[in-house]
C-alpha cells in the first residue's frame, strides 16, 4: 500500500512538471472562448450549447492527456531503466501498475476539475447562471477516462511499440464510443450476423453510451452508483490482466 501510494505520488509530481499540461490548459481557455462565441450566436439555449461545446473540448483534451502522458510515461520508464530499477526493489508488479495507474487518475482529476471550474466561471460571468447539471459532467468524464486509462496501461504492457499501444487505445475508445450506435444500425439492417456481432461488442466492452455526460447528469443516484460499479469492474479486469502479462514478461 505504501509503495503504491509512493508510486502514485511521484507519477503526479512528474506529470505536473511536464510542460504540456500548461499548454493543454491554454488550449482549453482558447476553445472555451470560441464556444462562448458560438453560444452567443445560438439563440435557443446558449448555456446548454456552451456546456456542450465546453464538454466536447474537455473530452478531447482529456483523451489527449491520457494518451500522450500515460502511454509515453510507461514506455519512457521502460526505456530509461526506471522500470527495472523499481522492480529490482521490493516492489511487486501489481504495486507498480496500480501505483502508476492511480497516479494517472490523480493527474486526470484536477485537470477535469480545473477545466469545469473554468467553464462554470465563464458561464457565471456571461449568463449569470450555470448549467444545472454541470457538476456531474466531470464525474461522468472521470469514470469514462478511468476505464480508458486502465486500457492504456494494459495495452502499454502488451505492445512492445509505443505507437501500437497508442493506436490500440484510440481504437478501443472509438469502438466503445460507437458500439451502441453500431448495434442500433445493425439491428435495423438485413444482416443478422452483423447485428449479433455488434451486440456482442457492445455487451463485452464498456459501452460509452452509458457515460453520456448530459444523460448521466440527469440520471438518478442509483444509476450513477451502478455506473461507478460498472467502471470499477472493467478497471479491475484490465489492471489484473496487465499484471498477469507483466508477471510473465521479460523486462
Amino acid at each position: 500500500m505504501r509503495k503504491t501510494a509512493l508510486l502514485a505520488r511521484f507519477t503526479l509530481i512528474q506529470g505536473i512538471k511536464e510542460r504540456f499540461f500548461v499548454g493543454l490548459l491554454v488550449l482549453l481557455v482558447f476553445t472555451f472562448a470560441l464556444s462562448q462565441y458560438i453560444g452567443i450566436l445560438s439563440l435557443a439555449n446558449p448555456v446548454k450549447v456552451v456546456t456542450d461545446l465546453g464538454t466536447s473540448s474537455i473530452t478531447f483534451l482529456a483523451l489527449a492527456l491520457i494518451l500522450f502522458f500515460a502511454i509515453t510515461f510507461l514506455y519512457k520508464e521502460r526505456e530509461e531503466g526506471m522500470l527495472l530499477l523499481i522492480l529490482s526493489r521490493p516492489v511487486s508488479r501489481v504495486q507498480y501498475l496500480v501505483g502508476r495507474f492511480t497516479g494517472f487518475l490523480l493527474l486526470l482529476a484536477p485537470f477535469l476539475a480545473v477545466s469545469f471550474l473554468l467553464l462554470a466561471g465563464l458561464q457565471m460571468a456571461i449568463y449569470s447562471r450555470v448549467y444545472q447539471g454541470l457538476p456531474w459532467i466531470p464525474v461522468a468524464l472521470f469514470l469514462k477516462f478511468s476505464v480508458v486509462l486502465a486500457f492504456a496501461v494494459l495495452s502499454s504492457v502488451f505492445f512492445t511499440e509505443q505507437i501500437t499501444s497508442l493506436l490500440a487505445t484510440i481504437s478501443f475508445y472509438v469502438v466503445c464510443q460507437l458500439s451502441h450506435q453500431a448495434t442500433l444500425i445493425a439491428s435495423q439492417g438485413s444482416n443478422p450476423f452483423a447485428a449479433k456481432i455488434t451486440l456482442m461488442v457492445e455487451r463485452t466492452l464498456p459501452s460509452f453510451e452509458l457515460y453520456k455526460p448530459f444523460k448521466f447528469a440527469q440520471a438518478p443516484l442509483e444509476y450513477k452508483l451502478l455506473l461507478l460499479f460498472y467502471s470499477l469492474l472493467y478497471i479491475v479486469a484490465f489492471i489484473l490482466l496487465a499484471t498477469a502479462l507483466l508477471e510473465r514478461k521479460d523486462i
Binding site: I13, Q14, K17, E18, E80, G81, M82, L84, L85, S88
Partner: peptide, 13 residues
C-alpha cells in the same frame, strides 16, 4: 542494490 544499463533518472525531477 541494482543499477540498470543505460539508466536515466526521470528527466523532469
Amino acid at each position: 542494490g541494482y543499477l540498470p544499463e543505460h539508466f536515466r533518472p526521470p528527466s523532469r525531477l
